[in-house]
Design a protein around this nucleic acid. Structure first.
Length: 1058
RNA sequence: GGGCCCGUAGCUUAGACAGGUGGAGCACCCGGCUGAUAACCGGGAGGUCCUGCGUUCGAAUCGCAGCGGGCCCA
């Protein structure tokens, strides 16, 4: 049997119970098993990094995934959904270093790489367990028992295998390149690991002395003085105009400078030059014959041996001096210029950010410390033109926040730039939600794609499976663990991490020994192979062949440059096609001011705070309904509270009929919708039709992943249709005590609506849905499915759809609302009936709606009659007043205007109005007896509403509420006032609903008493009084006695239970 | 500096693709109901639709330019 429930929505209580139930029966596995014959859906979970704590954005991400997958499952999809964990990489190394108090790579080597790796592994696994618990609290169903983890051998093999594909397709390259380098972590870092922040640096203009020309200098600008020792060239734009000028320095001496013409004034101002003359102008391409002396050649001996020339580069902009300092070892563009022109790549800086021996005087010095020293040295040599500070955006290591530098180093690359065209073609085949995520944003990013540096000089990561022969230099890529064992002396139990694999050697064909290169993979490469690694490919092939590529993935828009990209890149290398068929890109969670949440700002809201206060379903409902998935979400506590209130209303709607159903032993098994169909009232058919419309609205919203629309139509149905309307309409029917088909019809309709709604909310509020399902379905049907999440998604029942009825009800509702408005104008409470309401409709549909739903309209307006006029008909009880319009009268009648005005006021307004209605004319007689013609422009009209009538506009016309009092109405009004007070006192005594009482009522006003006495019997029945005494001189006694003031009349009421 | 998204009432938003009198919720004020009751419901007030220019009979909506916010990039 259906049970009564608590009178408050207690999310934490419900969720605790539901989680225990899910765990007890292993609901997740049962549901997946139940649907295994359904349509296949391969979903890949973007693996969160195991930081230990989920934040609101991670919660949102998983809530979206969970809601969509639950919806698909109810629509009979067989889902593959292993949860994923990203567990390698620098972030964990940095955390473990912190725990162990390490400062640099040396500390790790001293501690032992093996020990360090074990710590990292332990750390990652612990964090994963913590986070799994947090996701469970949210009610997220993924395969948590068998998640894919990047640290597992089977996963590492997927990465190895992929690299082998790259080598076989000649897409793997080793070489010296300039990379982003973190001098603290002593490793290359990916473009995507660089975070840009403001930073203040020196901004210096330096003079490079030309060879073979006295007192003449090229002027360059830089914000990194420490790269001057590595300068190898100057680049200019071929088509810019450059000037050689004779400038007078602040100290009076003259010198010749070469720089872009349009920047001369600007630069001279910076150097405080007093005057100048242009000696000659030329194009950039004319400068290539120049060569210059390195400014610090005396301090960096190796520099004295290089030639320093001017080269052309199109990327040079007309900023600063137009002459760009080139240090091929310390800049991407610089490197390209160097390679193109065969300039030696001179890079006298080591991995820890200190100069090497090659840097001469600067050897051993930290580069940042060297900035000031370089500036001093330049100044001493008279080569510093200007020195200032500049605050600009500069890249930092995203994990340790150290300013990055660019270093030319030996790295491994995937040649993504060669795949760009096919990647762009693949993007078009993918379904993107929203469309611009792919067609604009992602396309834009891929167009700028560069070769991907996949090597890192670190410890905790997937080792790069390249073995190199120390004798002949041959390289070999190992694709699987089996291959490694076969080719070496490794055992089956070998662990594929450093330092264990580092010890494995392979015999080279030349007879030499091959050992592994020391690098590990960029951690982005780990997750890049997720779509096949999660299917355990290449270890097993069957599932891959059946399921790959993924049907669906969804992540935040930061993953455009991240996982969407890395997956595509790796997949193009491995298979030559995109690894996903459809992608939903979601937004970011921001704080209430629209700012990014960040620990340092202190504006972070944690998911568990929200859950603790309002429950997981509330958080889910809030996050899903607050904004479109692809828009950013401003987190507002007040909005969460509002959503929570809505859920409480839903709870109350659900609770409302349960006591009555329980009292009547209502059994849905015995009362079918068919069996009550003859007793269905219009409002019952209406709510059933609305229910169907909501199902179809939710379906179309889900079709385009518009989860917010789905949520909003459900919420609106609950609030507007159920709580504010249907429940109000049917309340009296639930109070009938006898076995009554009208009441049974309501029970059945409510039951169906509740069960359907329960299924509709199941993807979004899975706990509440489970709780309701247990009570409404499992408590009734012994053989019900075990959980609501096994149920089929509701299908629209066309036989219940009645769009006309829905439209009619909407019309009637708007009339009821307007009549409430009108009642307020005449201060007549709803408890008091009105004799009639009069509707003047704008179109035929209004009359049809009222005919259809007259009972509903009369009941909800508490009117004794409803009168509908014809379209265009004027209600003859309304008066009309003619208001003369001076601006129309004045120009025509000049001096007689006053008389005309008076005449219009005297005229028969009704006749006047109908005469001029369509531009017609009307004769009025002035006081002096003459007649004049009045036209439309000269007069306006106002309705005169009868006293005690009030009007209000609604979308389809006007409503007039006639609130004139009659004896009958006053009698009923006062009687209802009496009844309400007695009911209030019954409540105060906490009487059970059908308990009888005796009541004594004294009314201190003879007229009112007389009115009330008309309905004495009615009152007695309504308040269940076996003995009711009402009079002027009644002695008022009872268990509870109260004095009341009713519209200025004092009443004294005493009641007692019998 | 570039790409994409966003800008509507004090706050959160619908409407924009497809031009035709801008709709809700929260908060606020006023009221109703009283067998959902520490619940529920109605009404009111509140708008330079970011700004400017353009297209059009007509622009929140289309176009251009700018301003502000977010993400990403340089």
């Amino acid at each position: 049997m259906i049970k009564e429930i608590t009178n408050q929505y207690d999310a934490n209580d419900i969720e605790k119970r539901v989680h225990a139930f899910w765990q007890e029966i292993d609901a997740y596995s049962k549901v997946r098993e139940f649907r295994k014959g359904g349509k296949k859906l391969f979903f890949v979970d973007g693996p969160p990094y195991t930081t230990g704590n989920i934040h609101l954005g991670t919660a949102w991400n998983k809530i979206i995934k969970d809601s969509i997958l639950r919806y698909r499952s109810m629509n009979n999809h067989a889902i593959i959904d292993r949860a994923g964990w990203d567990m390698h990489g620098l972030p964990i190394e940095v955390k473990v270093e912190g725990v162990l108090g390490f400062k640099s790579k040396k500390d790790i080597e001293t501690y032992g790489v093996g020990n360090f790796i074990e710590k990292c592994k332990e750390f990652a696994l612990n964090q994963k367990d913590d986070m799994t618990g947090q996701f469970n609290t949210l009610g997220v169903w993924l395969d948590w028992k068998d998640p894919y983890m990047t640290l597992r051998d089977e996963y590492i093999e997927a990465a190895w295998w992929t690299l082998k594909q790259a080598q076989e397709k000649n897409l793997l390259e080793q070489g010296k390149r300039v990379v982003n380098w973190c001098p603290r972590c002593e490793t290359a870092i990916a473009d995507s690991e660089v975070e840009y922040d403001d930073r203040t640096d020196p901004s210096i203009y330096v003079k490079f002395k030309l060879k073979g020309e006295e007192n003449t200098y090229l002027v360059i600008w830089t914000t990194t003085p420490w790269t001057i020792p590595s300068n190898m060239a100057v680049a200019v734009h071929p088509s810019f105009e450059y000037s050689k000028i004779r400038a007078t320095a602040p100290d009076g001496h003259e010198e010749n400078l070469i720089l872009a013409s349009e920047l001369v004034n600007d630069v001279l101002r910076k150097g405080k030059y007093t005057d100048y003359d242009v000696l000659e102008t030329m194009l950039g391409e004319d400068l290539t014959k120049l060569s210059y002396e390195h400014p610090l050649a005396d301090l960096v001996p190796k520099q004295a041996k290089f030639e320093h020339n001017v080269y052309l580069a199109d990327y040079v902009t007309a900023e600063n001096t137009g002459c760009v300092h080139i240090a091929p070892g310390h800049g991407m563009d610089d490197f390209d210029v160097g390679v193109k022109n065969d300039i030696p790549i001179f890079c006298p800086v080591g991995s820890n950010g200190s100069y090497t021996e090659e840097a001469g005087k600067y050897a051993g010095m930290n580069i940042i410390d060297a900035n000031m020293i370089v500036i001093e040295d330049l100044k001493e040599r008279g080569l510093l033109l200007s020195e200032k500070k500049i605050t600009h955006r500069y890249g930092h290591c995203w994990r340790c926040n150290t300013p990055i530098i660019y270093l030319a180093t030996e790295q491994w690359f995937l040649k993504i730039s060669e795949l760009k065209e096919s990647m762009l073609a693949e993007i078009k085949k993918v379904d993107w939600y929203p469309d611009w995520a792919g067609s604009a944003r992602f396309k834009d990013w891929v167009e700028g794609a560069r070769d991907w540096c996949i090597s890192r000089q670190r410890y905790w990561g997937i080792p790069i499976p390249v073995w190199k022969c120390s004798t002949c230099g041959t390289l070999d890529v190992i694709g699987t663990k089996d291959e490694l064992i076969e080719r070496s002396d490794a055992y089956e139990t070998i662990e594929l991490h450093r330092p264990y694999v580092d010890k494995i050697t392979i015999k080279c064909e030349c007879g030499g020994i091959m050992s592994r290169v020391e690098d590990v993979f960029d951690v982005w490469f780990d997750s890049a192979v997720a779509s096949w690694a999660t299917l355990k490919y290449p270890h097993t092939k069957e599932s891959f062949e059946e399921n790959w590529p993924a049907d669906f993935i969804t992540e935040g828009h930061d993953q455009t440059r991240g996982w969407f990209y890395s997956q595509l890149g790796a997949s193009m290398v491995a298979f030559g096609k995109a690894p996903y068929k459809s992608v939903l890109m979601h937004g970011f969670t921001l704080d209430k001011d629209g700012k990014k949440m960040s620990k340092s700002v202190g504006n972070v809201v944690e998911p568990h705070e929200v859950i603790g206060k309002y429950g997981a379903d509330t958080l889910r409902a809030y996050i899903l309904s607050a904004s479109a998935p692809w828009d950013d979400l401003k987190f507002l506590w007040e909005e969460v509270a509002t959503v929570h209130r809505t859920m409480n209303i839903f709870w109350n709607v659900y609770r409302f009929p349960l006591p009555y159903m329980a009292l009547d032993n209502f059994d849905p098994k015995k009362v079918s919708l068919e069996s009550v169909s003859e007793h269905l009232r219009k409002e019952d058919r209406w709510i059933l039709s609305r229910m169907q419309s909501v199902i179809s609205d939710v379906d179309s919203a889900m079709e385009e992943y518009a989860l917010h629309k789905a949520m909003r139509s459900i919420t609106e149905f609950i609030l507007e249709d159920l709580s504010r309307w249907y429940i109000q309409l049917i309340r009296p029917r639930t109070w009938i005590e006898a076995e009554d088909p009208d009441k049974l019809a309501v029970y059945r309709v409510l039951y169906d609506v509740f069960v359907t709604t329960t299924k509709l909310i199941a993807p979004f509020m899975p706990h509440l849905a489970e709780e309701m399902y247990t009570n409404l379905v499992k408590n009734v049907e012994g053989d019900a499915l075990e959980t609501v999440h096994m149920c089929d998604w509701p299908v629209v029942d066309d036989s219940l759809v009645d769009k006309d009825l829905e439209a009619h009800m909407e019309t009637v509702r708007s009339i009821v609302e307007s009549s409430s408005n009108a009642r307020q104008k005449v201060a007549r409470k709803l408890r008091w009936p009105v004799s009639r309401i009069v509707v003047t409709p704008k179109d035929e549909q209004i009359g049809a709606a009222i005919d259809d739903l007259r009972g509903v309209l009369m009941g909800q307006t508490n009117a004794k009659d409803v009168v509908v006029l014809d379209v265009g008909e004027y209600w003859d009880e309304l008066g009309v007043e003619a208001i003369p319009n001076p601006s129309g009268i004045g120009p025509v009648f000049k001096g007689d205007a006053g008389k005309v005005t008076a005449a219009i006021q005297q005229a028969d307004a009704v006749a006047l109005k109908s005469a001029v209605a369509d531009g017609g004319e009307f004769e009025v007689t002035l006081a002096d007896g003459t007649s004049v013609t009045v036209t439309e422009k000269m007069v306006n009209f106002e309705e005169i509403i009868p006293e005690s009538v009030a009007s209000a506009e609604f979308a389809g016309g006007m409503v007039y509420v006639d609130a004139k009092l009659t004896r009958e109405i006053e009698s009923e009004g006062y009687s209802r006032e009496v009844i309400r007070r007695v009911q209030d006192m019954r409540k105060e005594l906490d009487l059970i609903v059908d308990e009888n009482i005796k009541a004594f009522i004294r009314i201190d006003d003879e007229r009112i008493l007389d009115l009330v006495m008309d309905l004495e019997a009615f009152i007695a029945k309504e308040v269940r009084a076996d003995l009711l005494v009402i009079g002027l001189d009644v002695e008022v006694t009872g268990t509870l006695v109260k004095d009341w003031d009713v519209e200025g009349v004092s009443m004294h009421v005493g009641i007692s239970p019998l």
